[in-house]
Design a protein around this nucleic acid. Sequence first.
DNA 1: CTGTACATGTAATACGTTACATGATTCA
DNA 2: TGAATCATGTAACGTATTACATGTACAG
Lengths: 170, 170
Amino acid sequence: MSLRHAVLGLLAHGPASGYDLLKTFEGSLANAWPATQSQLYGELNKLADSGYVTVAAEGPRGRKEYAITEAGRAELHHWITEVEPERVRRSDMLLRVFFLDLVERREALDYLRREAEGAAERHAAFAELALVVDSTDDPLAEHGRIALEWGLRFTKMQQEWAEWAQRRLG
Amino acid sequence: MSLRHAVLGLLAHGPASGYDLLKTFEGSLANAWPATQSQLYGELNKLADSGYVTVAAEGPRGRKEYAITEAGRAELHHWITEVEPERVRRSDMLLRVFFLDLVERREALDYLRREAEGAAERHAAFAELALVVDSTDDPLAEHGRIALEWGLRFTKMQQEWAEWAQRRLG
DNA sequence: CTGTACATGTAATACGTTACATGATTCA
DNA sequence: TGAATCATGTAACGTATTACATGTACAG
């Protein structure tokens, strides 16, 4: 049910076409809620049917510019402030850990080493992004920066955990 | 595609019925890969069709005890050691953070406070579990303990992040 | 005038959740 | 004998991924 709220959240900042929104979903938002082109266009039509968005303008090449309605804003506000975030998360990375006793110790250590390295790489990428964000004094980037901080801390935690696990197993 | 590997991983430790497996999916494994009864029974039939498991014995009340085959073990080993874990994760908790500029500052701080509190609670629950696990010298619990450590570190990170975010916003 | 970017849509397939449906065994 | 537990299966619905399908506008 969250794709609809992701779309509403973006449209709450200003009108946009499905194509515009797609760029955002491929960018920063991909870290919180990835979505495909197919999904997006379908969701926009459903949102329009429900009255949460309207086609505010039509442009060249069949472009449809969507705008959020009052009902859409109300639904979005309700979702942000009153709906409990979903705690269930699947992790096939962690799932493998449960079964590491089924492979050679060498293979298990290799697995954890790759996890640590991958986490370190993703951390470095986030850190670079943070440098850029921090050097611009754009107040609109404030919440993106808080989400980015989550990524920084998560990847760091993941790396440290994988290193700890290697020491414990090794 | 990971439910099948979760099932294979459990059966690699010994034969079990769908009903048996369900208990495990409701327990420790729920933190890494939750699954419903409906999904499980369906997957077991598919795995049997593919030759990854066989019905090793039948018991009272239509009970079917499944056992992993050599092909199943090979597939499981391949998955653990060679298949790259999926990095894409959706988080509606993080998604809301991107849109926190759309609500009152008071509401945004409330949201982060609730996140911090929830993380602290989940951390405490994990910590209690860790005490139990650490006091038993069961070598089989070793990998479960490593997964548990991930939960411990994740919830701690989440709490600290939410507190940091409150200070930054407030 | 041609390639690239813009722009939207549908179909097939798989995965996941909830609810429904049914029945056998055990134990108090 | 009635309730709890054991035990499996199906159906409906929603969401996600991939591929297919089509056409317009603009810039070089």
